[in-house]
Structures are given as C-alpha cells and as structure tokens.
Design a protein around this nucleic acid. Structure first.
Lengths: 207, 207, 207, 207
DNA sequence: GATGAATGAGACTTCATTCAT
DNA sequence: TATGAATGAAGTCTCATTCAT
C-alpha cells in the first residue's frame, strides 16, 4: 500500500520544517551547540521524527549545508563572463552578488563555519570548495575579458577573482543584518574598484 | 611561604603551554570539539592543572581569544593615518596587514568562529567588535586623508574601510596556508585598488 | 464479511514466515539483539504486520519458544519405557534423540538461552521445565526397567536420566553443525555407557 | 605525583566490586538486559565510575568473561593425564570437576550464554573455545591412557572426552543451585560410566 | 600547586509500540 | 488487514567539574 499523495506532501513539509529549524540553529549555535532536541522543538516535531528523516545528526548537518548550495550556485553563477560589455556585466554581477549574500545570511553563516574549520567538516567542505573553485574561475574569466577589452587594468585575473570572493564572504562575516539595504548597494558600487576599471566609472551604470 | 621566583616562572611557562595548546585545538576543532583532556595532553600537563590556571572551560576560551588580541592590535594599528604621504602609508599598511593576517592564521581562525557565531560567544565577541570598530575607524581616517590630498578618488571612507577589513578576514578565511608568501604579497598589491588610487600605481612603492 | 478461505491461508502463511524469521534471529542474536524491524525484513513482511499477528515482542518470543516444543516432544517422548527389551529400546532412543538434537539446532539454541537465563524468561522457562521433568521421568522409568531386567547396572535411575538429558543439551551446546552426521551417530553409540549396560554392547543393535 | 598505595588498593577494590556486580547481572539478565546503571547501583559505585575502569560495556563484558577463565582453567586442568593409575585419577578428576562446576555457577551461566550465541560474541567465544580444545584434548589423553592399561573399554577417546565436557556444561545448565552437594557427588560417581570402566567399579575410590 | 579518580548531567541514538490511512 | 510514519522511553557514552591525596 503506497503512501497517499497527501501523506507524501505532509512528509515533505515536515522535512522542510526540520531543515529550516536546523539551519537556523546550526548557523547561530554551531554544530555541537545544536541539539536534536532543540531542532525538534523549533520544528514543532517530535524528537524521534528527526531520525525518521535523517539518519543521524551528521546527515542532517550535511543536508543543511549542501542542499541550499543549489540556490547559491544559481544566484551566483548567473552572469555571462563572455559578455561583450564586461564592465556592465561586472556591475550587474556585483549588485546581484551582494544582494544574494545579504539575503542568504543564515546559510552563509553556516558556510563560514564549515570553511573556517574545514579539517573538521572535511566532507561537507569538499562540496563548498569545489563550488568556490568554479565560482572563482568564472569571475576570473570575466576579469580577463574586461582586461582584454581594456575596461580593466592588467592584473592577474585569478588574484582579482580570489580577492573578490574573499571580499564577499568577508563582508557577510562582518555584517549582522539579513536584508539587502542601501549599505549593501554601496558595497556593490565601491567593490568595483577591486577590478581596477580604467574609465571614469560613475554610478550611472548601476542606478 | 611565598612562591620562589623559579616557581613563578615555571607556572607562567605552564600557563603559556596550556594557552598555546588550547588555541590550536579551539581553532581547528571548535569549542565543543575541544576537550580539557585534549588540551592537557597537547600541553603536556596534567588534566587537573588546566583548572588550576583557568576557572573553567569558558574562561580558558575567553583568554585564548582575548589575550592575543593585544598582538593583533599592535600589528594592525601601527600605521599613521595622518601621514603626509597617505598613498605610501597605505601601501605599507597593506603589506603589513596581509603579512600579519598570513602569519596569525590559527588565531584568526578562532576569530572567524567567534564572529561567525557572535550570539553564542557574546562576551568574547564584544572585545573583538570593539577592536574592529577602532580598526575600521582608523583605516577610514587614512582613506579620508588620501582623498583630501587627492591620491584616492572620493568615496565614503567608512564604506571603503569596511570593505577593506572584510577583505582581510575574507582572504584569511579562504586560504589554508600559514606563511606569508608571494601570493600574499600579490594580494597586498592588488588590494590597493579597493582604495581607488588616482595616479598610476606601480609596484615600486612596495618593492 | 468473513474472510475467504484464501485469505485465511495467506495469513497463516505470513504468520509462519514471521515465526521462522524470528526463530532464526532470536537464536543467533538473542532477544534484545533481535528487532522487530529485522524480523519483518527477514520475513519479507511489512514492519507493522508483525504486530498484526503478535501483540508485542514478548508474545512473539513466547510463541517462537513454545510452539516448536510440540515437535520436540513428539520426537523425544516417542519411546516405550515399558519395553520388554529395554536395552534395544534405549539404543534406538539414543539414536533418535541425537538425531533430533542434531536437526533442531536453531530451536535448541533458543532453548539454551531460555534455560540459561531462566529468571529472565520465567514464563517461557516454565513450559520448558515442565517438559524437561516429563522427559527425565520417562527416561528414568526406562532406566529402572532395564535395571530390573538386569541389562543395566543398579544406580539411581533419576540421576542417570538427569545426566542423560544434560548430556544431550550439552552436546548440542558444544556443537555448531546443523546436520545429523557420523559424529552424532558415534555420540549416540558412546553415550550408551552412561546407562552402564551389563552385557558386552556392540554396535550391532544400532547399525 | 604517583598514586598512593592506599589509593591503588581502593581502586582495585572498586574495580573488583564492579566486576562482581557485572558478572551477576550479565549471568542472570544477559548482555542487553544488563545496563550500566544497574551495574553501578549493584556495585555501589557512581554511574560514571564504571567508565573509569572499563572503556565501554563491551570491554566490561569481555573482562567479566575472560578474567575468571584463569580460575576455571586451574580448577579443571589440574589432573595428571599420564597417571599410572588412570582410573583413580579419573575418579578424582570427576569429583573435582563437578565440584568446580557446582561452585562456579554464575560464571558458567555466562559461559553458556557466550557459547550458545558464539556468532554474536565472537571475540570472547574464541577465548573459551581455545580453552575447551585444550581441556578436551587433555581429557582425551587420560582416556587413552586408561584404555591402554585396560581400565577403560576401547572407544574413540576424543568422542568420550567431548561427551564428558558436554555432560559437565549440560549438568550445569540444567541445575539451578550454587553449592556442591550430595547430588553433585552422585553425578560425579555416575558420570564415570561414560568412560566405560572395565572392572567392577565401586564407590570406594571416591569416598 | 599538581594530579587524576569520582561524579552525574546531558547528548545521541535505537527501537517497541501506536495509529492514521 | 497491511503499511510505515510518529513518538518518546531508555540506554550508552562523553566530558566538565569537584575534590581528596
């Protein structure tokens, strides 16, 4: 007797609730600071139910870290590094990236923890690190593109890309707010300097 | 009977060994991942001795995070924000900062943890946050100085300063090495762009 | 609506599968080592179905231990203690007993557990113990019969009977195979000495 | 600072108390039926102290089973299989063996569990099984010795030895008392028949 | 002051049992 | 009746902290 449609939906809802509760707790209280009991209470679910959906705490953590990576990838890798107008592309990219990093606050807090203690979270870090490489590589290509066209000064594109991704995560680490606001808009504008644009860049392109 | 000079020195040595062992463990294994037993073994000291020098685990952690802050402050706040040559001052500052951040790896890993979970480590975070404000303010003044003289383009100096400190911690977070090397040297050079220097900046000033 | 003949047959089949799976698991993994989940998987039946047929784990265990007792009784109490040729009767009994104990390996493993921890399995042990008394009593009568006729030396018949049943279970405990083989045949022959036969006993009667 | 003599003695006492409590519980309630909490209460020791002396439950069980094996070996392998009077030697051996099996009741209950579920307790069973082989071999030699001298009828000595050790453990399994008594004395006398003595054996040698 | 045994709170996890579908 | 998700009691084990020596 297979499960009814309604049951399946209900289970997915419960699983989602658990994941959200777990994400919030892992982000603010850390791995050990988060107990299954706390998660179950926050998710308004019985203690044992957490284990119905996740083999153990480790598996819960893994899912919490890896699953939202899909959304992060989509929001972060959308840009066209082969654009004919790399300056404009970069400006738009910056704005979108800062917006994404502003909005995905809780998740990125988690990412920081994993990256900061990569030896401890080796499995999960591997996933993040692979993404980081892809991300940095793509940014590097855009930088190179801009340099060839002459809108960016000549510099090692990978160094620039590395500094840029570091800047993003660093800003996220140093901020405590969850919303995209004027400050983040300003960050995006100012961060363009990292790419060393040759022309007089005004805010026009972004406004 | 007062303690002899020799005894006092010995105790200080033991305390230092414990602190160093604890720093390494807290940095790589986290707060809960670090047990007093592990610390005592790493410090080559008996289990109970840890409690002779520190009231409890909390106090040990606090000391481990707060005490090295003095060194960090010294290495990071050394620059002269009122310098008559703010461009040169900035270049030198960059190099020294990246060097410091490269070398104080383990400690900064710890800092990242505390900042990333500031709600959890409220007490200790307060100390770090106050330092961060001072640091950012001083950098902001240097930026302002440079803008007035005309070596930097006009931008909100505090935004620039914030991005700069974020970049520093972000680079540290994304790197895994412990030594100052050519890569870090390049970071320092390239990061200057964040300040939007007006003249043609070459590596001369840094080499 | 009463259940159809087919349905009833199906249910009996399912129940039997569960019992067999449970017997194997209880025998090799013990009471606590056996989980309802394992039983359901081994029986190729859903988790909940076990509870459809048995009130709880306790009831399942009880059935697993008590139900096969009928077969054991039949195979073990078949002999005629009033036989006019008690020596021959004893020889045949021995062979059949050892054969039964060789073949009912799994079940007897279970019996050993219950007997070995009779305080813990008081209910179920009671059943086994009553059977044991009957068994021993009947063997005792055969021994007495043989002694009166003079084919066995005089000894306390109950002591002999007790030693004999102990020997049976002891041999079963010390062996790991599941089949009746030459070794078991030899056991049966040699075990006759326990009854202290007066004449020269050869293997003739058994071969 | 090494532990004082007094402290060491106290620790040994505590460890012994735990072992005794554990043996009683494992014997009567089985491995899973025995909880660390029960052991600590029975040993009049705190919960955590059990883990001070034993790595985990498994290690406790192992020690409980393997340590008393030394005593069992001593009490069981004492006899001289090369004796010039193998009949007398056998009679004495029987008496001592039954006495030992009567007195080491609790421990042998444990042995029965391990042997009865050897797959589950593979590690610990190995130790017991090795001992059993030695034991059986030595008994076999004594039987052979007796057969050569002519006090025992010719039979496969190893079969006799196997039946004998099985008888011992079987009797222990079927009895519930803890003391050596008249019944056990009678068992010892009657069990001699298993060896098929040729002469008229009376109780003289044993009384 | 130095040591490490003693303690018990609290975490993770398993699993029998219930019950809605 | 068959199924398997939901639940929470109970067990193992870790580890911070205390304290006697």
């Amino acid at each position: 007797m297979p499960l009814s449609e309604k049951q399946i939906q209900n289970m997915e809802l419960r699983k989602k609730k658990i994941l959200e509760a777990a994400m919030g707790l892992f982000a603010t209280e850390g791995y050990e600071g988060t107990t299954i009991k706390k998660v179950s209470v926050a998710a308004n679910v019985s203690f044992g139910s957490v284990f119905t959906y996740f083999k153990d705490k480790e598996a819960l953590f893994y899912t919490v870290v890896v699953e939202p990576l899909t959304e992060l990838k989509e929001r972060v890798l959308f840009f066209d590094e082969t654009s004919a107008d790399p300056l404009l592309e970069t400006k738009q990219m910056l704005r979108e990236h800062f917006r994404a990093f502003a909005e995905m606050n809780r998740y990125l807090q988690l990412v920081v923890q994993v990256v900061g203690q990569h030896e401890r979270y080796a499995d999960v870090f591997k996933e993040l690190d692979e993404f980081h490489d892809v991300f940095r590589g793509k940014v590097g290509k855009l930088v190179q593109n801009g340099q060839q066209i002459g809108v960016f000064k000549k510099q090692d594109p990978l160094i620039v890309a590395t500094l840029y991704t570091s800047l993003l995560i660093g800003v996220r680490l140093n901020s405590t707010d969850n919303r995209y606001s004027d400050v983040w808009e300003q960050y995006a504008v100012t961060a363009l300097n990292l790419f060393a644009p040759t022309e007089k860049v005004t805010d026009k392109g972004l406004s």
